[in-house]
Computed example of a mutant assay.
Amino acid sequence: MNNRAPAPSGDRQRRIDPELLEILVCPMTRTPLVHDKEASELISEAAGLAYPIRDGIPVMLVEEARRL
């Protein structure tokens, strides 16, 4: 049973494992991503896309990414 308290409902950002951030790459260009903590996104400068992070989980789908 999980005894962890749920995150506050307004908390869009959850901590992302730094090791995960090191291995994630843009699915379109296979280039490294930049973590924008304020926007809760992973930025692919090469593709000009921002991948959302929802509930602490990166959504690495091109069709879900925002154009920069």
Rank of each mutant, 00 (worst) to 15 (best):
A47T: 03
R54N: 09
R54P: 05
H35G: 13
Q13L: 15
E19N: 13
V34S: 06
R67K: 13
P58A: 04
R54C: 13
V62W: 12
L24V: 09
N3M: 09
E45V: 03
P58Y: 03
R66C: 06
M28V: 10
P27L: 06
D36S: 07
A65T: 06
Y51I: 02
M28D: 14
R30P: 00
P27F: 03
A5G: 07
G56A: 04
P8K: 15
P6V: 05
M1D: 11
I16V: 14
D11M: 10
T31H: 09
S44T: 07
Q13R: 12
Q13T: 14
I57H: 10
K37R: 12
E22L: 14
M60H: 02
N3L: 10
R15M: 11
E63K: 15
H35Q: 11
R4P: 04
Q13V: 14
S40P: 01
R12F: 11
G48N: 12
R67Q: 12
L24K: 02
A47Q: 06
D17Q: 14
A39T: 11
P6I: 12
S40H: 09
V25E: 01
L68T: 14
A7T: 10
D36Q: 05
P27I: 02
N2Y: 03
R14S: 15
I57F: 14
M60G: 04
G56V: 03
I53L: 02
R66E: 10
R12T: 06
E22M: 10
V62H: 06
D55W: 05
P8L: 12
G10M: 14
A39S: 08
V62I: 11
A39F: 03
L68S: 06
R12M: 08
A39H: 07
V62A: 11
P6G: 07
R12E: 09
P58V: 05
G56Y: 12
T31A: 14
E38L: 15
A46V: 08
R4W: 14
L68G: 12
A47H: 02
R15Y: 09
A50F: 08
R12Y: 09
I16M: 05
E63M: 13
R14N: 02
D55G: 11
V59R: 06
L42V: 03
V34F: 07
A50P: 05
R54A: 09
P58C: 05
L42C: 03
C26V: 04
L61H: 04
I16R: 00
I23P: 00
E41S: 05
R15T: 11
I23V: 08
G10V: 13
E64W: 13
V25C: 03
G10H: 09
M1K: 15
P58H: 01
R66S: 08
R54I: 08
I43C: 02
I43A: 00
A5T: 13
L24M: 05
A39V: 07
G48Q: 08
E45N: 10
G48W: 08
